[in-house]
Design a protein around this nucleic acid. Sequence first.
DNA 1: ATTATCTATAGATCTATAGATAATGC
DNA 2: ATTATCTATAGATCTATAGATAATGC
Lengths: 191, 191
Amino acid sequence: MRVSREQAEKNRAAVIDVASRMFRGRGFDGVGIADIMKAAGLTHGGFYGQFESKEQLEAEASRAAFARTWKRWQGALAAEPDAPLQAVASFYLTKAHRDHPETGCAFAALAGDAARSGPDVKAEFESGLESKVALLEEALISSGASPEEARTRALATVSTLVGALVLARAVNDKSLGEEILASAAAVVPDG
Amino acid sequence: MRVSREQAEKNRAAVIDVASRMFRGRGFDGVGIADIMKAAGLTHGGFYGQFESKEQLEAEASRAAFARTWKRWQGALAAEPDAPLQAVASFYLTKAHRDHPETGCAFAALAGDAARSGPDVKAEFESGLESKVALLEEALISSGASPEEARTRALATVSTLVGALVLARAVNDKSLGEEILASAAAVVPDG
DNA sequence: ATTATCTATAGATCTATAGATAATGC
DNA sequence: ATTATCTATAGATCTATAGATAATGC
């Protein structure tokens, strides 16, 4: 049941894509390799021809999630260049984002898991963070901020956004969750 | 090998205490019941005489963690009543806290896990959050803030603190972690 | 001939339970 | 007699690997 080299590459990419969603939805420890391969339409045993280990897939799936969400951030910033922090906050701090971790921010979904993971996963979180912070910094500098102020505001804003989403997901009360998101949006300055 | 009712109650409390640290250190899914019971000096099988399920222990261990850290917050606020947000930020956003999740804030350590847990765990996270927010609100109102402003600032500050700690733990680069913590401290207002 | 994927399984977990044991508390 | 804890195990996972299979790519 061998497939073409092209198809094999597509299969590998599909595994990463499926894993990226499943990991965000259920956590690294909440999904098994058999689950992922089945969802990608392949068999469990085929996994180790594509990846060295589950941890390698965790890293690659995180990278893929960051690449996707980076584009979303970039689009929002391009559409509203004069208020970059509000631009990001307004799509980030939403009920839809809270209710759909599997397609949302990998920091909010997996940073706790990454904190307990090995250096390969953390390396992806590190570059994922730096690349988002770089987007915000650039936009803030264009809006007239100093480089130092831009970096501080960018880092702190990401912390506020991620913290608010994580907390909003950890409570039962939906309206409390929305209050958390709204309070975070209220303190994000207009850049 | 039966023990006195008093000792049995102490054993149960010890299991909760040990679990509260181990869960914060390794996540709910990263620790087994056998691990916890062994660390508490008991046998695996004894667990189900003390608790209905692992999830019940997760909820009780979370509650215990919140009770402990609530006291820390209260102490910091009592010591510095005029700058409540800075008071909390200055012990929360530290290298020591980043490097010791097992004795630190359960939001930062476990909110991602809680988001995927059942309603009993989420209920503890909800009341754990409300009780910390209540402390901050009260202090901010004493410092002259309106009730609405106090609540918004309290919720947003907790989001920023938790987000910064979670992100600082998810990267390899220690100095980047410290930069994240410092940027969060810089944007927390003086109350 | 090479190799992507398959079936099947090893070996190590995990939660939860059944039944035995022995000390407490009536 | 009751009950807190113990030993032992069922049954369901999980990661990872071994070896077979069959289509690609030389």
